[in-house]
Design a protein around this nucleic acid. Structure first.
Lengths: 218, 218
DNA sequence: TATAATTTTTAGTCATGTCTAAAAATCATT
DNA sequence: AATGATTTTTAGACATGACTAAAAATTATA
């Protein structure tokens, strides 16, 4: 069993490893992600290393063991299932769920999470479009691309977001952009990278920054 | 905001105060309830006293302030709503809910608990028959009596249990005794206080110990 | 390849919440 | 009221997880 603190470190290391694709995750990167100090990270890493969650060599960064990865995906599974519950059953909007799911993900009860999965009908994605690992910790990989890489005339379905800040998610709500929506690139502005897109029956101009935070499945 | 530990102490003091009806709750009683040592209790009590949750005078025991009582009923509200959720939505049996609800009750999110209340249809009782406080912390008092005090020929509806141990609850399940069931006393055995009761269409003999842990509404 | 800059680790401290052992206060008994 | 038993508190220690400041190692730069 892991403490909440340990679980937060495991999750942070997993996420950093996934989207940095570097072997060793640096102490500083973890510290930044968890808004803590590098010295605290070193301490925790030593403990996680003793518990066989990570492989650690001084000054070399850390890597999750298979056991560590499994632990991480289990926490992520819980986090994402709770997010689905909050949005679908308790009327949370997608920008409100994260903070509460951060707490709920630490509840210890295998029965709880499996029954929740059943109750929700085995959802495959969380409200931000991220895949939910199965109870074995397997996570389906989704081929997706940033809206920003589409060329004029191409289109796709909105399947996820990169940035999950409240500001961004509320902006998307306001513009009517949601998971499952079909988006077509009408025009690409070379000057600032902004896009003119078609959404439902209306045309909409969105900045390059927005287009770099929206995932599309073609 | 209170830590989980603080919340557990507040809840323990509240429960002890309710069913002991003595002014000051003793250090030893709290220690026993929380399976901790008296010295730890003294330490925590000092902290809670500084936070205006309890009134404390050395060697005199503690009493919850109004603020403390409100805090306690709020935690109990969360605990019992989660119990309802687990039983009604996630197929938990009433002897399985306590441990998980002990964890869930510490989740901090007013929206979460109010939406959960709505989602469950504003339940008035938890799976053990205990009343659920409203969002103001008000708790309806239910006039109920122990099955053991009924006389021969009297009857009532099962509205709650005193003992909530797995053994007891599983025993009740096995015997077909559940909340809402009508129970009639057919015979009272003076020798050992056991009862012959009518439940549905069958007669059943139960011990005095059982009868002293079942609440009836006449 | 030295030196500077950065990163990482170590050493020591602190807060929380626990414990044991001993001292102090209260309660019970005669 | 005095003695003994019990309860409660105090004092000091420990584990967890955080921090600061300084030392050590690595990386970057000249």
């Amino acid at each position: 069993m892991f403490s909440q603190s340990e679980e937060n470190y495991i999750k942070a290391i997993y996420h950093l490893a996934v989207d940095s694709s570097v072997k060793g995750i640096s102490t500083n990167a973890i510290a930044k992600k968890l808004a803590t100090k590098a010295s605290s990270v070193t301490d925790m890493i030593k403990k996680l290393s003793e518990k066989k969650v990570v492989v650690y060599k001084k000054y070399q960064g850390v890597t999750l063991t298979d056991f560590g990865k499994k632990t991480a995906t289990n926490i992520i599974r819980k986090h994402r299932l709770w997010e689905v519950f909050l949005v679908e059953k308790l009327n949370f909007s997608w920008d409100e769920v994260h903070e509460v799911a951060e707490q709920l993900e630490h509840i210890k009860s295998p029965k709880l999470i499996n029954e929740l999965d059943i109750f929700l009908g085995f959802p495959k994605r969380d409200p931000h479009g991220d895949p939910i690992p199965d109870s074995e910790g397997n996570l389906q990989i989704i081929e997706k691309s940033l809206l920003a890489v589409l060329n004029k005339g191409e289109e796709g379905i909105c399947v996820g977001v990169d940035d999950t800040s409240s500001e961004f998610l509320q902006f998307l709500d306001k513009q009517g952009i949601a998971l499952g929506k079909r988006i077509k690139v009408i025009e690409k502005e070379p000057f600032d990278g902004s896009l003119l897109i078609q959404l439902d029956d209306k045309e909409l101009s969105i900045s390059n920054k927005i287009a770099n935070n929206l995932y599309i499945q073609q």
